[in-house]
């Protein structure tokens, strides 16, 4: 389980199908804003599998600079998104 302020990177994988990790955040590094607890896995629920293991969910905060680089409107503005634990890896 990740803890508040931990640095995490959203995995870059691009499997087909129903996932809730937005493409614009994949590969981007953010900071855990808060853990939210465990929730059903949308990647199973979407296909009718309601008995699968739950997944931890986190609110992760990213800076506009991290996401959009030089194209950021205001680099210090932020985006918070909810990302399931299996989409996150520790970041240096």
């Amino acid at each position: 389980m990740a803890s508040p302020a931990d640095k995490v990177r959203v995995k870059t994988m691009m499997p087909p199908g129903h996932v809730r990790a937005p493409a614009y955040l994949r590969g981007k590094i953010g900071v855990i804003e808060r853990p939210l607890g465990e929730f059903g896995n949308p990647e199973l629920l979407a296909y009718g599998h309601t008995d699968g293991p739950k997944k931890p969910l986190y609110r992760v905060r990213f800076t506009m600079a991290e996401i959009w680089g030089d194209a950021a409107e205001t680099p210090t503005d932020t985006i918070d998104a909810e990302i399931y634990g299996h989409w996150l890896e520790p970041a240096p």
Partner: peptide, 15 residues
């Protein structure tokens, strides 16, 4: 104003 920080919240999951 630029002095106000904008925080965008993308409702991607259960909240």
């Amino acid at each position: 104003p630029e002095t106000t920080q904008v925080r965008v919240h993308d409702s991607t999951a259960d909240m």
